[in-house]
C-alpha cells in the first residue's frame, strides 16, 4: 500500500445526524454529547466518511465542503483530541 494525497474539498454525497449518544467506545466531547452530522464526501476517486461540521439548514447532498478538524474528546491527560471533518466551502476557496 502506498500513500496517496486526496483533494481537501469535495461534495456531500450523503448525510445524516447522530441524534442519540452512542454507546462506548464512543467518547463524548468534554461538554457532553451533542447531536452531530456525519456523511460521505465525494472526493472524486473515493467517497470518504467523515463528521460534517455543517448546520442543518445548510446540509444537503451536493453541498461543496472542505477539510477541517472537529473536536472529538478530551484525553485522560487533558489533551483535546480532534478528528477530521468537513465544513461548508466558502466562496472563492476552490
Amino acid at each position: 500500500m502506498s500513500a496517496r494525497i486526496l483533494p481537501v474539498s469535495g461534495r456531500v454525497w450523503s448525510w445524516t445526524l447522530q441524534a442519540f449518544q452512542p454507546k462506548p467506545p464512543y467518547r463524548a466531547p468534554s461538554g457532553g454529547h451533542q447531536p452531530y452530522h456525519v456523511g460521505y464526501v465525494d472526493l472524486g476517486e473515493v467517497l470518504v466518511e467523515a463528521r460534517l461540521a455543517v448546520p442543518r439548514a445548510q446540509i444537503r447532498i451536493g453541498l461543496p465542503v472542505r477539510l477541517t478538524t472537529v473536536p472529538a474528546y478530551r484525553d485522560e491527560d487533558g489533551t483535546e483530541v480532534v478528528t477530521f471533518g468537513f465544513r461548508p466551502e466558502r466562496d472563492g476557496e476552490r
Binding site: Q18, P22, P25, Y26, R27, Y36, V38, E49, A50, R51, A72, Y73, T83
Partner: peptide, 9 residues
C-alpha cells in the same frame, strides 16, 4: 478511532 469518534453505528 472509528468508534471513539462516533462513526461506528
Amino acid at each position: 478511532w472509528y468508534a471513539e469518534t462516533g462513526m461506528m453505528l
